[in-house]
């Protein structure tokens, strides 16, 4: 068994925040300030519950109930001319609010407007698949399932898409470390060479700042390489890199620096 470490606090943290720092907000406007958006919002409100709505950075954001997502998107597509689902995914709020926020980014080419539909689901709750309305949701929902573990009801092929089928864990959760968990660390070694090879191949070197100046495997000391395993004294003779042997190569003309032409103008 491998030792698992707790992963509640694995994301990068700012190392210093001023006690009195209060972050500003991106300006929100009332939907009434835009005619087209207001009409769209009224059409949605007539049929479904709208929890919140505002305009942020030129786009209307509408919060709806999780069960209404298919209906709202159908309304947007069939009646309000939002013909394309540009993007959909989720945001992890497990630590703060115990669930996920799913967003659908819609585009209307006739009105030149973009709407973002957002809904909140509890941990473990599934959303309704909108794959019947927009084929693009087919892959997006699979990606969401892969990255967050959120399932879509009624999806024809709910399997991982980016990670391998035998992968464990959902990488975009805030409880998943950037450099992978214990399963990810030796995934490829286990799969190709088996668990016996772990010792021989060794752990991954994840420290980007690690410099080993006597390492012959790497190129940290160009021109001073020594074979692996030799005793390093620190004053090895320079081993000049040249791509041809001094005595010349059989059947190959020796490159002569003096007789060569150097092109200064790259545009020649």
């Amino acid at each position: 068994m491998r030792a698992y470490t707790p992963k509640d606090n694995v994301q990068a943290k700012p190392y210093y925040t001023d006690r009195f720092y209060k972050s500003p907000q991106v300006a929100k406007f009332a939907p009434q300030s835009d005619e087209v958006f207001n009409a769209d919002l009224e059409a949605i409100k007539a049929k479904f519950d709208v929890l919140d709505a505002f305009i942020q950075v030129e786009q209307l954001v509408v919060y709806i109930n999780a069960k209404d997502n298919y209906g709202v998107l159908e309304l947007l597509k069939d009646e309000l001319e939002y013909t394309q689902l540009s993007e959909m995914s989720a945001i992890d709020w497990l630590a703060d609010r115990g669930g996920f926020e799913v967003f659908y980014q819609m585009l209307s080419m006739n009105k030149r407007k973009r709407i973002r539909i957002k809904l909140f689901i509890e941990d473990g709750q599934a959303v309704n698949s909108v794959e019947k309305l927009f084929r693009s949701a087919d892959w997006s929902e699979r990606e969401m399932f892969d990255m967050f573990g959120i399932e879509a009801n009624g999806h024809p092929f709910m399997k991982r898409i980016l990670m391998p089928y035998d992968w464990q864990g959902n990488p975009l959760l805030k409880t998943y470390p950037l450099q992978g968990d214990e399963f990810a660390a030796l995934y490829e070694v286990d799969k190709i060479y088996g668990k016996e090879a772990r010792e021989e191949i060794g752990p991954e070197i994840r420290d980007t700042a690690r410099v080993d100046r006597y390492d012959s495997d790497r190129f940290s000391r160009l021109g001073h390489e020594v074979p692996k395993g030799t005793e390093i004294t620190g004053n090895e003779p320079a081993n000049e890199q040249s791509y041809q042997e001094d005595g010349g190569v059989f059947l190959i003309k020796k490159f002569d620096k003096e007789s060569s032409v150097i092109i200064d103008d790259p545009q020649r």
């Binding site: 990670m163 990488p171 950037l178 450099q179 992978g180 990810a184 991954e204 070197i205 994840r206 980007t208």
Partner: peptide, 9 residues
């Protein structure tokens, strides 16, 4: 790419 999905060499 010092991430979960990349083989480190």
């Amino acid at each position: 790419f010092n991430t979960y999905a990349t083989v480190q060499g």
